[in-house]
Design a protein around this nucleic acid. Structure first.
Length: 322
DNA sequence: ATGGTTTTTACTGCGTC
DNA sequence: GACGCGGTAAAAACCAT
């Protein structure tokens, strides 16, 4: 975004410089009439007799300024300006809709038909291209998010597969690439048993939670993905290690969750909250110090929830062991 | 859309270092 | 007095209907 705007301003300034330059010679050698610069065609024309004094007066120098060689290398470029607003950055062929040739003359009906056919085919190639680029971008996103979340390789694979399926089933129209990519990562992580919470995901994603949940639900339904509700235990190792707690704590936390499961207080509660509470309670039992706020930090869950859950967990554990 | 459940927010009080 | 912890009420979010 900022790239294009800076480029734009640089272009306009250099254009001003250019016109200033070409206004040095002001009289026609033939009739000594006033000379005018036709920037569109790159010509200098006499306004009286129409003599073209200078043709092709295009400034072939760089349209930017550089103050050292590194900057020069950076800015030097060849080809049309690119835009991020099009999947192909605007680099593919564009055929105008008007039946005019390069000089603005109308085309013969034969030519018109030919152009129509070309448009059709061009469009076909372009959309096929668009799917591939779409995929490329999505896979890039998936990779980026996965590594930001520290997800293993196989999760990325699964996420890619999910995304490809979504693409193949034409689930993309109406949804953003990033949204679907994010949802794929979320689903893949859960399927692989290394879930990340919606909050964690939305931190590294470019889409907000709302869109993520909506898209996630949608693709799960449409692709018939079977995803079991996240198991609190699958969060425990990560939380424990983030808080630098011992394996002992981790083990006890699992036990607590197990007891809670038997006591039937897992259903309906957020798995993340349960896991966080179990870790906190276990640390307490093992005399390893963690504060509720620390746990709530790494689990991105409120302290209140931790309090409520861990009380319940401890009660359940007592009942069962007693 | 609605109602029930869970989670979060915000606030308060208590004890300890 | 700051901090960790516990509790509460109201608001917000979530989910199934």
């Amino acid at each position: 975004m900022s790239d294009t705007t800076t480029l734009r301003t640089q272009e306009t300034t250099s254009e001003a410089e250019r016109t200033q330059e070409s206004e040095e010679a002001t009289t026609c050698p033939e009739c000594s009439g006033r000379l005018e610069t036709d920037t569109e065609h790159g010509e200098v024309v006499c306004s009286d007799c129409g003599l073209v004094v200078e043709e092709d007066s295009i400034d072939r120098g760089p349209e930017w300024r550089a103050f050292d060689s590194a900057e020069r290398d950076n800015k030097s470029r060849v080809g049309a300006p690119t835009t991020k607003m099009m999947h192909d950055k605007g680099l593919s062929t564009n055929i105008g809709w008007q039946d005019k040739d390069a000089y603005g003359n109308s085309l013969s009906s034969r030519q018109r038909q030919k152009m129509q056919r070309l448009r059709t085919w061009n469009e076909r190639f372009r959309t096929r291209d668009s799917k591939e680029r779409n995929l490329k971008q999505a896979l890039g996103e998936i990779d980026r998010m996965s590594s930001a979340l520290g997800l293993p390789e196989n999760v990325r694979e699964t996420a890619s597969v999910i995304y490809r399926r979504a693409l193949a089933e034409n689930l993309l129209p109406g949804r953003s690439i990033e949204g679907v990519a994010t949802a794929s990562v979320y689903a893949a992580a859960r399927q692989a048993g290394v879930p990340r919470s919606l909050d964690e995901i939305s931190v590294v994603s470019r889409v907000d939670r709302m869109e993520l949940t909506r898209t996630y639900r949608y693709i799960v339904r449409e692709l018939n993905l079977e995803i079991a509700p996240a198991d609190p235990e699958s969060y425990i190792p990560r939380f424990a290690s983030d808080l630098e707690l011992s394996d002992e704590v981790e083990r006890r936390a699992r036990d607590l969750v197990e007891d809670g499961r038997e006591a039937g207080l897992l259903s309906g509660k957020s798995p993340v909250g349960l896991a966080a509470a179990a870790v906190y309670a276990a640390a307490l039992l093992c005399n390893e110090k963690v504060t509720q706020s620390e746990v709530s930090e790494v689990a991105s869950i409120s302290e209140v929830t931790i309090r409520n859950r861990y009380k319940e967990l401890l009660e359940a554990a007592e009942v069962i062991t007693a």
